[in-house]
Write a protein that binds this DNA or RNA. Structure first.
Length: 110
DNA sequence: AAACTGACTAATA
DNA sequence: CTATTAGCCAGTT
């Protein structure tokens, strides 16, 4: 399994209406400090893949810039369509919209 | 094989 | 709050 596929698997679990950061994806995939690789994986993502790539934003809660600015706008529209709100500066409140998930846990909490 | 390149981040000023 | 910087690391040249 490639690291890309591990990232995709995590991203697929992001619920509609929530977002996750690149670093968060990397950590959940078991590959800490691979945030940049996550972005790279998304850039390489084939259009046909059913991966909610639009739900991945940077640690500041904004849609990251990229080579083709167009898809950036598309991403925002897709998120707004999921009822995610942007402030005047184009940022999402992570406090309210970030996907919070329990990290892997080995022991059972009684 | 060495250099370059990011859809990144946390720390610092 | 914004701007800069130094880490980061696999895929591409």
């Amino acid at each position: 399994m490639t690291s890309f596929e591990r990232f995709y698997a995590v991203i697929k679990r992001i619920p509609k209406g929530k977002v996750a950061t690149y670093g968060q994806i990397a950590r959940l995939a078991g590959l800490p400090r691979h945030a940049r690789q996550v972005g790279f994986a998304l850039a390489a993502l084939p259009e046909r893949a059913r991966v909610p790539w639009q739900r991945v934003v940077n640690a500041s809660g904004e849609v990251s810039a990229r080579e083709h600015p167009n898809s950036q706008a598309i991403q925002r529209v897709m998120l707004e369509r999921e009822k995610i709100e942007f402030d005047q500066r184009g940022r999402i409140s992570l406090a309210g919209f970030q996907w919070k998930v329990r990290e892997r846990r080995t022991a059972r909490p009684s």
